[in-house]
Simulated assay, not measured.
Amino acid sequence: MDETIHDRIGALVQEYGDGKNTVFANKIGISEGNIRGYIKGIMPKADVLEKIVRTLDVNAMWLLTGIGHMRVSNLDINAPVLVSDNDRLAPILQQFDVFIQKKDAQIVQQAEEIGRLKERVSQLERGKGKNASDVPTSGVANVG
């Protein structure tokens, strides 16, 4: 069994690249050095994972977790989810939950900042007595 995403990418190189990083990299449109790095332990970014899944019709759940079959064509949507699969999936989903909570907190902070900036713009417009977009523009400069 391929225990890590790095092992699974190595398995994909064997399956789709005849064991050659260069062949596999060319198939998905990235550099061979990146593939070498992913196999050695560098975590691939989401866009690379998406390229693998879309280009090669790889099962995303398998690629991310090792659960299920490598190929989408081998999936059985009627197959029951095994308890052991849920046990393996729970820690992964917990990591995603932490990530989502951090992103939610960032969104809240950014929304608050946007609200403050909108209020500041309104104050400035009231202070000037008109909207910034109402300022007349002229192509002629006054030279004194």
Rank of each mutant, 00 (worst) to 15 (best):
Q123S: 14
G33N: 13
G10H: 04
V53D: 03
E125I: 06
I92A: 00
I67R: 00
G37C: 07
S138I: 11
G115T: 15
A132K: 08
L63S: 00
Q106E: 15
P44H: 10
I100M: 13
I114V: 13
R120E: 14
I67E: 02
P91Q: 09
N142L: 13
G33I: 06
T22G: 01
R36N: 11
K102N: 06
G29N: 07
V72A: 04
G29C: 09
A60G: 10
S133L: 03
A60Q: 08
M61G: 05
I42W: 05
Q101M: 07
I28S: 00
A11T: 10
Q106S: 13
A132N: 08
K130F: 10
R120C: 11
T22Q: 08
V81P: 03
E3D: 12
F99Y: 09
L12N: 00
G144Y: 10
D104Q: 12
P80M: 04
V135N: 13
R88W: 04
N74Y: 05
F99G: 10
Y16N: 02
D2A: 11
V108Y: 13
L89I: 06
V108H: 14
A79K: 06
W62F: 15
Q109K: 15
R126L: 10
D2V: 07
I92K: 04
A25V: 04
A90Q: 13
E3L: 14
A25M: 05
P91G: 11
L117E: 13
T22D: 06
L82Q: 09
N142H: 13
I39C: 03
D47V: 14
Q101K: 15
G10C: 05
A111H: 14
P44W: 02
L89N: 05
S31A: 09
Y38V: 01
I77W: 01
P44E: 06
I77V: 02
D87H: 07
K40H: 08
G127M: 13
N78A: 04
E15T: 06
T137R: 10
V143N: 07
D18S: 12
A132P: 02
G29P: 03
V72K: 03
K20A: 02
D57P: 04
A90P: 05
M1K: 14
L49I: 15
A105L: 14
L117T: 14
A11V: 05
D134Y: 05
G33R: 09
K103P: 03
D104F: 06
K128F: 12
E32R: 06
L63Q: 00
K40Q: 11
A11H: 06
V53P: 01
R88M: 07
V140H: 14
V83F: 08
Q110A: 14
F24D: 00
Y38P: 01
V48K: 02
H69M: 12
K118S: 14
V53K: 07
N78M: 03
K118L: 12
R54Y: 13
G17K: 01
F24Q: 00
G10I: 01
I28C: 00
D47R: 10
Q106L: 13
I114N: 14
S84A: 06
I114R: 15
L56H: 00
I67H: 03
D2Y: 06
I107D: 07
D97M: 14
I42S: 09
G66H: 01
N86H: 03
V53M: 05
G19M: 04
